[in-house]
Amino acid sequence: MASVTYEHVTKRYGDTTAVHDLNIAIEDGEFLVFVGPSGCGKTTSLRMLAGLEEVSAGSIYIGDRVVNDVPPKDRDIAMVFQSYALYPHMTVAENMAFGLKLRGLPRAEIESRVRGVAKRLGIEHLLHRKPKELSGGQRQRVAVGRAIVRNPAVFLMDEPLSNLDAKLRVQARAEISKLHMQLGTTFIYVTHDQVEAMTMGNRIAVMKDGRLQQVDTPQALYTRPANLFVAGFIGSPSMNFFSAKLREQEGTLWVDSGAFRVPIPPHQADPYRPRAGQPVIFGIRPENIHDPQYQPPGIQPARVRAKVSVAELMGHEVILHLSTTDAEGILPEQEFVARVDPRTQLRVNQWAEVVFDMDRFHLFDPQTEERLG
């Protein structure tokens, strides 16, 4: 097992910088997830650690050793790819044993390791099959098993679940998380799927345009996003954003979007008072908007009038797509999404009031896009 450190790491392709000055310290035994949209630099960061891409500037450490110039085979890492990269002419057992044979391990030890890992992953009965005879989920397990038998210091996984259907993805997420707990080895995982990131990682590194936006625990990213991008990327459906102004009236601080006005609770207002009269971006998550009839107890409710345009029944909840505008209808409609109790009686094309929980709002600077307060 080993820690991993990115120290001022940059990757350039000609005039294009794919990764800008990346600094992350990943603890021994940690499960860290790189997440972000396509082209954000997450896979490039992983490939530099694996030795598949050269580092343009900075240093990468595995443990206390700088590995910039160490060949991939000598870095004591194992990688699971999106495509699984299984050899089609080899059996499952041969695929899993291949890396151990290259290292010259005794045959008896190789067979023992392969059978032990196959049993742990529930693929012992597949050892004599070839990849074409396996389902997507079984191939994914073989690819993970091939990495485990090497007993590396660090596991690297590059979107290993993207080829699986929705049900198998949920199952595989749980299996990989359990595997991490059993092995206690450092896992570094790349995905564009924020649900995977939130459910699997001890910490998550959110990237955009080659730059690290925030690295923190899943709960901290959700409750205290550093900026507008992180707030919008983490959470499903995404956080709602409204252009607004802060206004102070008779000691009360209000968020005024033109279409609605909601008060900031007194116990939260002080950090924002210096910005009274200035524009802000007001953010609130869909799960913090409620049907007044079924609002949770103990919240700070603020009513907003809106029209329901779409209602999606999910069984355990209803996703409402709403729009609101000013009383005169002068301002353009502002659309937003709410996740409400499935017992709601709110219907499509109906004007109604919904409740914003003002204990759980966010304000952002429109210029810097940084979170305020």
Rank of each mutant, 00 (worst) to 15 (best):
E94D: 12
E124C: 03
D193F: 09
P301F: 14
V310C: 06
L127E: 04
R305P: 02
M181P: 00
V190D: 06
A2G: 05
A352W: 06
A143R: 04
I123R: 11
P106H: 01
A338Q: 08
L363R: 04
P160N: 03
D365F: 06
V70W: 08
V80K: 05
G36F: 09
R75Q: 04
A174Y: 01
H362Q: 11
Y294L: 05
R113C: 01
G258D: 09
R275Y: 15
H125C: 03
A220M: 12
D341E: 02
R120H: 14
D193R: 04
H89S: 13
V308S: 03
N349T: 14
I234T: 01
A205F: 08
H125K: 15
R107V: 10
F361M: 14
R75I: 03
T44K: 08
V337L: 01
V92I: 11
A118P: 15
W351E: 15
G136K: 05
S257P: 09
D15S: 15
D256S: 08
E159R: 08
S243M: 12
S238G: 11
D341R: 00
N288V: 05
I264E: 00
V19L: 11
E94Q: 15
L363H: 12
P271C: 04
H8L: 05
S3V: 03
V340S: 06
K245E: 13
D69H: 14
L86M: 05
H316E: 14
F81S: 10
S135W: 00
N202D: 15
L346T: 07
P292H: 04
V230T: 02
R285C: 04
S38M: 08
G373V: 06
R12C: 11
V117E: 06
I77F: 02
P342V: 01
R224W: 10
G232I: 08
I299T: 07
L313N: 13
P342H: 02
A226S: 11
H20Q: 12
G277A: 10
C40S: 15
I204W: 00
G329L: 05
D341G: 01
G235C: 12
A57R: 09
V215K: 00
K132W: 03
A338L: 12
F260N: 08
A352Y: 01
W254D: 05
P286K: 04
G51A: 12
G235M: 12
K130Y: 11
G145N: 09
P274C: 08
R339W: 03
R203G: 10
G137S: 00
A50E: 00
Q171R: 11
H192E: 06
R107C: 02
A306R: 04
L246G: 08
S112W: 00
R141Y: 05
G14I: 03
K11T: 02
Y6N: 01
N227V: 10
E287Q: 14
R65T: 14
S45E: 13
I26H: 08
I204E: 04
Q367N: 09
P271R: 13
K167A: 15
R224P: 07
A166L: 12
K11H: 10
T344N: 09
I123N: 13
A276I: 02
Q345T: 13
I204N: 05
M1C: 08
D15E: 15
